Simulated scan of single mutants.
Amino acid sequence: MPVYTVHAPTPSGADLRATDKFVFVRDGFHYRAMVFGPFWLLWNRLWLALIGWVVFVAAFNAGLSSLGVGRSSIFFADIIVALLMGFEASSLRRWTLSRRNWRQLDIVVADDEDNAERRFFERWSQKQRGIVNDQWAVDRGGPPPTRNVPGQQFSSPPPVPAGGIIGLFPEPGGSR
């Protein structure tokens, strides 16, 4: 089963308003990163990793050429570099998120990203109930007051005002 790491965009952690910006990064081999290395880096906006990849591949190929290595050996060395890119793609993505001050919130094991999101948010929402500044969750504290329990503040109805009933129908049982 794939393993996903969950990252939040704020350095202070999780905010309920930022849940649509959470990023799930799948750990493991990325075939598209291996085949389309620089394009995959561009697509995922990994600018420093792209610059590093271009510099590394250029220096690596120039170094092998200066050593007099044949073209077929350089081709196989480039395939090994592409395999390395496929294996390390998720690490590069996590590294870029950490450089942008994103925080890793959790690790989730699931079949696909949708199930990972579901599992994460189920577990995360249970943890969020204890947050004090949560504006959307209301802690009721206990059952609502009832009229028949003596000693509660809402046990008896409020007193009738001195002038009778206030409202649209001043006489009880009067015509409408």
Rank of each mutant, 00 (worst) to 15 (best):
E117R: 14
W40K: 06
I80A: 15
R119E: 14
F60K: 03
E88D: 10
V69N: 01
F121Y: 10
I79N: 08
Q135V: 10
G86K: 01
F75P: 11
W40F: 01
W43H: 12
V160N: 10
R45H: 15
R100Q: 12
S156K: 10
P150C: 00
F76E: 07
D112V: 06
R94S: 07
D78K: 04
D139F: 02
V69C: 03
D78S: 12
G70F: 04
S72G: 08
E88H: 05
G164A: 08
L83F: 15
P161G: 15
G130T: 06
S156N: 09
D114Q: 14
V149R: 14
W136F: 13
L84D: 08
N133G: 11
W40Y: 03
N148E: 14
A89M: 03
G130I: 01
N101A: 10
S90C: 12
A137C: 08
R99V: 09
S72T: 10
D134R: 15
V109C: 05
R100V: 02
P150H: 00
Q153E: 13
L64G: 03
L42R: 09
N148L: 13
W124G: 00
E113V: 11
I51C: 08
R119V: 07
S125P: 02
P161V: 04
F60W: 14
G164K: 09
W40C: 00
K127H: 11
S72F: 07
P143S: 14
L84E: 09
G63R: 07
R129S: 11
R99P: 03
W43I: 03
A162P: 13
R129A: 12
G68R: 01
P143E: 13
A89G: 02
W102V: 00
G70L: 01
Q152P: 01
N115S: 08
P143V: 12
N115G: 12
L46P: 00
F60T: 06
F75L: 13
F39E: 14
A82W: 00
G86M: 02
R71T: 11
G141A: 03
R93I: 05
W53E: 08
V57P: 00
F56N: 05
V57Y: 07
W47Q: 07
N61G: 09
M85I: 00
D134N: 15
L105E: 05
P145Q: 14
A162Q: 14
L42V: 09
I165F: 15
D139C: 03
I107K: 11
